[in-house]
């Protein structure tokens, strides 16, 4: 999932300081799961900013709603009536949701309440970690299911480097050396020979180096 974290309340309040009526829009997708922008978090943020504004003698009329997803146009079409009268929309979605709202509601001030952090998963309740580097061409079958692109601090493809000591990365003693993990797992699986295979140079144009990307499945596209 996409993992995000809420910005400080004062920072969000500053973005809408000149607005009188605001829609706080949560997202029931990834940010609900990572407890950053779901229904509960949306209500808490709206309540906190309403209180702050009241204390500043600048009352705010805040309404809240949580979309099924903000990254699918069909789910934000349904909020037209909520958006109509507001001065601004505070989106508690990832950066995708904020942009979809800004595209649909061209005359509205749309601001992000979250910092979108990474693609990852939960370790325990309340702790998430980065797991995927979105490189566009998965190589996990060659690395024992451990991603060197994002879990190696240098994203190197032929590690470990000289900074690997006792299984830890030199950048932080709490960071495992991804290549040590890869080596240990491949050895346990009896597949060390796979690491000896010569690999072609990675095509980084399939990652961000190629500019903004698109994914297409023509067989499911609906002709108008």
């Amino acid at each position: 999932m996409i993992v995000a974290q809420q910005k400080p309340v004062s920072e969000i309040a500053q973005m809408i300081s000149d607005c009188k009526k605001v829609l706080f829009l949560g997202c029931a997708g990834c940010v609900t799961v990572c407890l950053a922008g779901g229904e509960k978090e949306t209500d808490v943020l709206a309540s906190a900013i309403r209180i702050k504004r009241t204390l500043e003698s600048n009352p705010l009329e805040a309404t809240t709603f949580t979309c099924t997803r903000q990254c699918d146009p069909e789910y934000i079409v349904g909020i037209d009536n909520l958006v109509k009268d507001v001065d601004a929309i505070v989106s508690l979605a990832c950066g995708v949701g904020v942009q979809y709202l800004a595209e649909r509601f061209k005359d509205k001030w749309v601001v992000p309440a979250l910092d979108t952090k990474f693609i990852g998963g939960s370790v325990v309740h309340g702790l998430w970690e980065e797991k995927c580097g979105l490189c566009g061409e998965c190589i996990l079958h060659r690395t024992g299911g451990i991603c060197p692109i994002i879990r190696c601090s240098k994203s190197i493809l032929n590690g470990p480097c000289g900074g690997s000591q006792h299984g830890k990365c030199e950048v932080d003693k709490d960071v495992d050396c991804a290549w040590q993990l890869i080596y240990d797992r491949m050895r346990a699986l009896g597949k060390l020979d796979k690491l000896m295979e010569i690999q072609p140079i990675k095509d980084w144009s399939k990652s961000r180096d190629g500019g903004p990307r698109k994914a297409i499945r023509e067989d499911v596209m609906i002709d108008e």
Binding site: V9, S10, A13, V44, A48, I49, I51, K52, L55, E56
Partner: peptide, 8 residues
């Protein structure tokens, strides 16, 4: 923490 941040 929130209450401190918002001034209440």
């Amino acid at each position: 923490k929130i209450l401190d941040e918002i001034g209440l």
